[in-house]
């Protein structure tokens, strides 16, 4: 008898405790979302910078936001990380996929579990609530060509580099650049088909040196991948070709800064991954707050380059910013990545 009474007492206390916990737990969840940003690979300058953005935004909003990524670029490892996050029960996932196709099944699983999925650098993603790109790839390429054509005086031959011929976005940049050249600089021409450099500055350097030997009329280099900025800078500086051969393309101040300052290259262009990280998280929070209709054509997301986002004409959940940053030797010191 005594034992039974004690048991009832214990059960009451326990159930009250559980009730209390669940009430406070629910209250906490209402004001704090758990959102993971999953990137291609952790530990490179690019995504270190994105982490800075995500962490800053977490402080600003008070939500539980963090960034993770595989130690090396590996599609399977990225999928595994997303699986783990689904099991942990996050509210939203912001993803920069290494391979768009490889993550489709696991993103479907996430969405089936009620998780909001926002992606970046993945314009063809299917299983996703919304895709936000820093810019329209063709417009980004056109902007590279605008500077290159201006520096070359609208005349002469040029080459284009891509990390790989299968890299979708880089090839779209170059498509945009070439289209802009045809329209605006009729006296310029591509001397050879686009050159593959495997995102390796050494290969960029060697290929550009070779192209300079092979094509005497080569005056411009239009760089798709980031390392081309360093390879081109070295090739130009070493042969004292400043002012005769020009480079414009994707590059980071930390890698191309020395060549911008020495005058070997004129402009580099990139988009700030910190802002991309913030924008993705902001959209995810809007979706979780039930305000997804606010993310529409022309909406101002309140970040540089995202003051008036553009909706894709065909794919209704695909949006673009105009988030590129152009860096010359005058403003290179403002960036530390």
């Amino acid at each position: 008898m005594k034992l039974k009474r004690r048991f009832i007492f214990l059960a009451t206390v326990l159930s009250m405790f559980v009730l209390l916990m669940s009430v406070t737990g629910a209250a906490a969840a209402e004001k704090k979302y758990k959102i993971a940003t999953v990137v291609k690979v952790d530990g490179i300058a690019w995504f270190d910078r994105m982490r800075v953005g995500v962490d800053e935004y977490a402080k600003e909003t008070g939500h539980d936001l963090w960034m993770v990524g595989p130690a090396k670029t590996d599609a399977a490892e990225q999928v595994q990380i997303i699986e783990d996050l689904i099991a942990q029960g996050v509210d939203a996932l912001c993803i920069v996929p290494f391979s768009v196709e490889a993550v489709e099944p696991v993103l479907k699983k996430a969405r089936d579990a009620g998780i909001v999925v926002i992606s970046h650098e993945a314009s063809t993603q299917e299983n996703v609530d919304l895709i936000i790109e820093a810019f329209d790839n063709h417009a980004y390429g056109a902007n590279i060509m605008k500077d290159l054509g201006k520096n070359m005086g609208g005349k002469g031959g040029y080459i284009c580099t891509v990390g790989s011929l299968t890299s979708k976005s880089q090839n779209e940049w170059i498509d945009g650049a070439v289209a802009y050249q045809k329209e605006n600089f009729p006296d310029m021409y591509e001397v050879t088909s686009r050159i593959e450099t495997y995102d390796d500055a050494t290969i960029d350097y060697q290929k550009i040196k070779e192209a300079l030997v092979a094509y005497k009329d080569l005056k411009g280099i239009c760089g798709g991948p980031m390392p081309t900025s360093a390879g081109a800078g070295l090739a130009i500086e070493e042969r004292n070709l400043q002012g005769k051969v020009f480079f414009t393309g994707t590059g980071l101040p930390s890698i191309a800064g020395q060549y911008l300052k020495s005058g070997a290259i004129q402009t580099i262009q990139f988009w700030d991954p910190a802002i991309a990280g913030k924008v993705m998280n902001k959209i995810a929070i809007a979706f979780l707050d039930g305000k997804k209709e606010e993310i529409k054509d022309g909406a101002n997301l309140g970040f540089p380059g995202f003051e008036s986002i553009k909706q894709d004409t065909e794919k209704k959940n695909l949006f673009y910013g105009a988030g590129w940053v152009v860096v010359t030797k005058d403003n290179v010191d403002e960036y530390n990545f």
Binding site: T192, S193, R194, I195, E196, Q206, E210, V213, A214
Partner: peptide
């Protein structure tokens, strides 16, 4: 070999 493919004019796909 690696440093002559552009000189010979082999398209990138075939290098």
């Amino acid at each position: 070999i690696k440093g002559s493919l552009i000189l010979v004019g082999i398209p990138t796909d075939w290098q």
